[in-house]
Computed example of a mutant assay.
Amino acid sequence: MTWADFWALMATLNGEATHANCRRLAEELSRRSVPDIIGFAERHAEALHRLDQEKFGTLPVADMTARDGSPFPQSADGFLYARCAVVAAGQAVWESVFSDVDKFAPYTSTEYDGEWLLYVPEEAYELATGEEWDRSTRYCFESYSNRDGWPHLRD
């Protein structure tokens, strides 16, 4: 799947990874070929992996503070869901955060939760084939897995 095809499919989310929007995207994707579904999963994983960088992951949660008033750090899951929200927001937003970290910051808010986007490839595959999704992607999208994005975590 090309990046253009991936971003065109992402545009069906209207900028938000709500449950209903992600279900609609999975249904749309399920009408495509299995290689397209796999290609979507690969692009999705790569988009998330590329956002897995220290400059984004160390931002505090936008709308929370600790009891003492200090910034509240993102959890690993919260950071993953924030990255999903950025991808769901579309190509222009995704591209813009790389040159301006402040554009990523709002997506750390508890108002944004892109978790539903994680399930789109497997849901589409299951709708298309009736079988369970059982494959890994080339890129790991789990938080802190991008060694280039987190240089001090390198072995």
Rank of each mutant, 00 (worst) to 15 (best):
R50D: 07
W133G: 06
K55S: 07
M10R: 00
Y81E: 00
D113Q: 07
R67E: 10
A45P: 05
T129K: 06
R154K: 13
D5E: 09
Y144S: 04
P60Q: 09
E123L: 15
T58L: 13
T137W: 09
R32E: 08
E95M: 08
A76E: 08
A105M: 14
L29W: 09
F40L: 07
A17H: 00
V97Q: 08
H44M: 14
V61W: 07
V87A: 02
S30A: 14
T108Y: 03
Y144F: 15
K103S: 11
N14D: 13
R31N: 10
F104G: 09
A17S: 01
R67G: 15
G57S: 10
S33Y: 02
D155V: 15
D100Y: 02
L59H: 01
S143C: 14
F104M: 05
R23V: 12
R31T: 07
E122G: 15
A20G: 04
G15Y: 06
A85D: 01
F141A: 06
D113M: 04
G114A: 10
S143D: 10
A76F: 12
E142L: 13
H44K: 13
D148S: 15
P71K: 05
A66V: 03
G57A: 14
P71D: 10
G15A: 03
R135S: 09
H49I: 08
H19P: 03
D63L: 03
S30E: 00
V120A: 03
W94E: 07
I37K: 03
D52F: 05
L80G: 04
E111V: 14
A89C: 03
A124M: 12
H19R: 13
D113A: 10
S136P: 05
H19K: 14
D5W: 04
K55Q: 11
R138K: 12
S136T: 15
T18N: 04
A92Y: 05
P121A: 11
D134Q: 11
S109A: 14
L59V: 00
A45T: 05
G114Y: 02
F40C: 08
G39T: 05
Y107L: 07
G69A: 05
H44E: 12
S30P: 00
S75K: 08
H152W: 13
V87D: 01
E142I: 07
Q91L: 08
N21K: 15
A47G: 01
D52I: 02
V61T: 06
E95D: 12
L117W: 02
I37R: 06
G57F: 06
L117P: 00
F79N: 07
D100G: 02
A26H: 04
D102G: 13
V97T: 12
V61Q: 13
R23W: 15
F141P: 00
L48F: 06
Y144C: 11
M10W: 01
F104H: 03
V120S: 05
G39S: 07
Y81G: 00
V61S: 01
S33C: 03
R50Q: 09
E126Q: 13
R138V: 11
V86D: 02
D68S: 04
V101M: 03
R50G: 09
E54D: 11
K103A: 10
E28G: 04
V34R: 07
A85Y: 00
R24F: 06
R24G: 12
V120R: 00
R135C: 05
L118Y: 01
Q91M: 10
L153I: 06
E123Q: 15
